[in-house]
Write a protein that binds this DNA or RNA. Structure first.
Length: 354
DNA sequence: GATCCGTGGCG
DNA sequence: TCGCCAAGGAT
């Protein structure tokens, strides 16, 4: 078991949290649905990005039953631009499981929540502690950074022994009054004071308890992780129009951009015509759009193709091919990368919307 | 268990 | 410009 922190740490941090926490919409409620939605959106995503998405989503789907009853297409339409789209698909599946298996009510323990789609160790602990006041530990990027400084924990992010140690500290620390606020307070400190670069130790309410600061190593902990360079990926996209509509494909519900709509695309240019069920050849390139994803440097190259007389049956990676009205492009589930490509492909449309 | 999965902000 | 990063989970 990890050594217990100083008994003065908890009240000092909670008092700071009470005074300095940011006013966020999901902090004005104890509704587990609202809190869960925020936790999924916040995965690998900054608060300022999430707020408008959360508000739109919560207004459209105000409870778990409304979400469960919605078509996945509508869910992805509201998620568009937020990234990591499997989160939205799992969110939808979890909502349906809550309705079908739990009568529309979230189970109140981390252990039970963990069985739902999209609930990992972190999210289960977050919802259990914040919505249900269970003394459930959690470790996210903020907690890992804060703890690595408080307790001078060595090792790079991803190191297995380090991760386990962090969870043991989290378990030891969360026990006591207000476990949900405690977890949020540690994350809030990490997000606003104990930041990666240039931590604001002079503003920190618990700097006296920080081992890294005692040793003058707050800038050195935690060590940076190494990342592999993104791999290049080039996709050739078909720009095909007919009567004010654009031919789009909806990807299968897996992998990159799973479930989203896009210009039919293939990594092999000569296969583009077959994808649309035509023997006509693409015209001259209309241009390219580049986007850097976590593991890929994505290049989309746009080619005009004449409309086929009849749409073929969709083939992998597409589950559906459909003529979509240009107006629908504003709300369909479309990745940010493909939205940028569509602006190039349909400049008149892009200008009309501005 | 290593890899995959988006996006926008920032130094 | 560019690498790094942010309230992770699934496979």
């Amino acid at each position: 078991m990890a050594p217990a922190p100083s008994p003065r740490l908890r009240p000092a941090l909670l008092q700071w949290f009470d005074r300095h926490q940011r006013d966020l919409p999901w902090r004005r409620t104890s509704d587990p649905y609202a809190i869960w939605l925020s936790e999924i959106m916040l995965q690998q995503t900054q608060v300022s990005t999430v707020v408008p998405y959360w508000e739109r989503f919560f207004e459209r789907f105000p409870n778990v039953r409304a979400l469960a009853a919605a078509p996945l297409d509508d869910v992805l339409g509201l998620w568009r631009g937020l990234g990591y789209y499997s989160r939205a698909r799992l969110l939808h599946r979890a909502a349906q499981a809550v309705v079908s298996e739990h009568g529309g009510h979230f189970p109140p323990t981390a252990e039970e929540l963990r069985a739902l789609p999209g609930f990992g160790r972190y999210t289960a602990g977050a919802v259990a502690s914040i919505a249900f006041e269970e003394e459930a530990p959690l470790v996210d990027g903020n907690v890992a950074r804060v703890f690595s400084r408080w307790f001078a924990i060595e090792g790079p992010p991803g190191d297995k022994a380090r991760e386990e140690l962090l969870w043991r500290y989290a378990e030891a620390c969360v026990k006591g009054e207000r476990p949900g606020d405690w977890n949020q307070a540690v994350m809030e400190l990490g997000a606003t004071v104990c930041v990666k670069h240039a931590p604001l130790c002079l503003l920190c309410p618990v700097s006296a308890h920080c081992q890294a600061r005692k040793e003058g190593r707050e800038h050195a902990l935690p060590p940076a992780r190494r990342r592999a360079a993104p791999k290049e990926m080039r996709l050739y996209c078909a720009v095909t129009q007919k009567n004010g509509a654009v031919l789009l494909g909806r990807r299968e519900n897996k992998g990159l951009f799973g479930g989203l709509w896009e210009l039919p695309s293939t990594p092999v240019l000569p296969e583009l015509s077959a994808l649309l069920g035509t023997t006509k050849k693409p015209g001259a390139s209309l241009g390219t759009v580049e986007r850097v994803l976590t593991h890929r440097k994505l290049t989309l190259e746009l080619y005009p193709l004449p409309a086929p007389k009849k749409l073929p049956r969709p083939s992998a990676p597409y589950a559906e091919l459909k003529w979509q009205n240009v107006e629908a492009l504003a709300t369909l589930g479309i990745s940010a990368a493909m939205q940028a490509a569509l602006k190039v492909a349909l400049p008149a449309h892009g200008k009309a919307r501005r």
